[in-house]
Amino acid sequence: MQIDRLDHLVLTVQDMSATIDFYSQVLGMQAVTFGEGRNALVFGQQKINLHPAECPIAPHAAHPVPGSADLCFIAQGDIHELLAHLRNCGVALEAGPVLRTGAAGPITSVYFRDPDGNLLEVSIYDSGIKR
Rank of each mutant, 00 (worst) to 15 (best):
M1Y: 12
M1G: 15
M1I: 11
I3R: 02
I3N: 07
D4V: 05
L6G: 06
H8V: 04
L9S: 04
V10G: 00
L11Q: 04
L11K: 02
T12C: 14
Q14P: 00
D15R: 10
S17K: 14
A18F: 07
T19V: 15
D21S: 14
D21N: 14
Y23C: 05
S24E: 14
L27M: 15
M29Q: 09
M29G: 05
Q30R: 14
A31T: 03
T33Y: 02
T33G: 08
F34G: 04
F34D: 06
F34R: 09
E36Q: 12
G37S: 08
A40I: 04
V42T: 05
F43K: 01
G44W: 01
G44F: 02
G44H: 02
Q46G: 07
K47Y: 11
I48T: 03
I48P: 02
L50K: 07
L50I: 04
H51A: 08
P52R: 10
A53T: 02
A53I: 00
E54G: 03
C55F: 07
A58G: 10
A58W: 10
H60E: 11
H60R: 13
A61S: 15
A61G: 12
A61I: 03
H63S: 13
H63Q: 13
V65H: 14
V65F: 10
P66Q: 09
P66N: 09
S68N: 15
A69G: 08
L71P: 04
C72S: 14
C72N: 09
F73N: 02
A75K: 02
A75F: 13
A75S: 12
A75R: 04
A75L: 09
G77A: 05
I79E: 02
E81R: 03
E81Q: 12
L82D: 00
L82K: 00
L83D: 00
L83M: 12
A84E: 13
L86C: 07
L86V: 04
R87G: 07
N88E: 15
V91D: 08
A92V: 12
L93G: 11
L93Q: 11
L93T: 12
E94G: 05
A95R: 15
G96E: 11
P97R: 11
L99S: 15
L99F: 13
L99I: 13
T101M: 13
I107N: 03
S109D: 10
V110W: 04
R113H: 12
D114E: 06
G117Y: 10
N118C: 08
L119C: 11
L120G: 06
V122A: 13
S123L: 08
S123F: 06
S123H: 05
I124M: 06
D126N: 15
D126G: 11
D126L: 05
G128F: 07
G128N: 06
G128A: 06
I129Y: 01
R131D: 06
R131I: 00
